[in-house]
Design a protein around this nucleic acid. Structure first.
Lengths: 96, 96
DNA sequence: TAATTTTGGTTTATATTATAAACTACTTTA
DNA sequence: TAAAGTAGTTTATAATATAAACCAAAATTA
């Protein structure tokens, strides 16, 4: 009845990150930080976990002399998000 | 943009419990255990947390000589579930 | 130009959570 | 009366989330 909710995605901040990335396809660290209201430390840790899970790619560059971290969702990440979406519906809709 | 997800409800097992209780209004411990596939220990702990939060009421009786734990959702619990439902939509729908 | 602040992060320490394992208390069955 | 089953609770541990502290370079200010 209740399917397992992917623990990587069932986290407020990581879900917000992935939610943003599925739409924009590419985002800077600072953009994600602003949109999610996360602290930099927390964001850094959670991005690393999403990367370790293969759900996002992280590219580090320099822009205007400053370090810049670019994040992109992977096909795996999209798939995981869609599955999470499907599975949580069961928890949200009233049972009969 | 992203609203806070009530940490009491943003837990796979507690969300499943509340999801069941909003529909049935009253359920036994053993019923919840079956439906959620939780271990008894985990279920016991999470029910206590939901009770501490004021989201459910727990009544302990005896039935056929055995202890029986009956759980009911409270108005606060229903309210919290509805709010959680609303808030998580933002995380689930694609951003524009 | 030396000190201070800002930017864009990472690492680490801690508090909170989730969970399983162990335990309790009682009942039924053999 | 010993063993197994029912219906839980308590406790110990592992996993998570998060903030605080830290780092390095760039920019600003004095």
């Amino acid at each position: 009845m209740f399917k397992e909710l992917d623990p990587i995605l069932h986290s407020q901040l990581r879900l917000a990150i992935v939610s943003l990335l599925v739409s924009v396809k590419e985002a800077e660290f600072t953009f994600l930080k602003e949109k999610t209201n996360a602290t930099a430390g927390n964001l850094s840790v959670q991005l690393q976990k999403l990367k370790d899970a293969g759900y996002i790619e992280i590219e580090k560059k320099f822009k205007d002399n400053y370090p810049q971290t670019i994040c992109k969702i992977t096909p795996q990440g999209i798939q995981a998000f869609e599955t999470y979406f499907k599975n949580i519906q069961e928890y949200l809709k009233p049972k009969k």
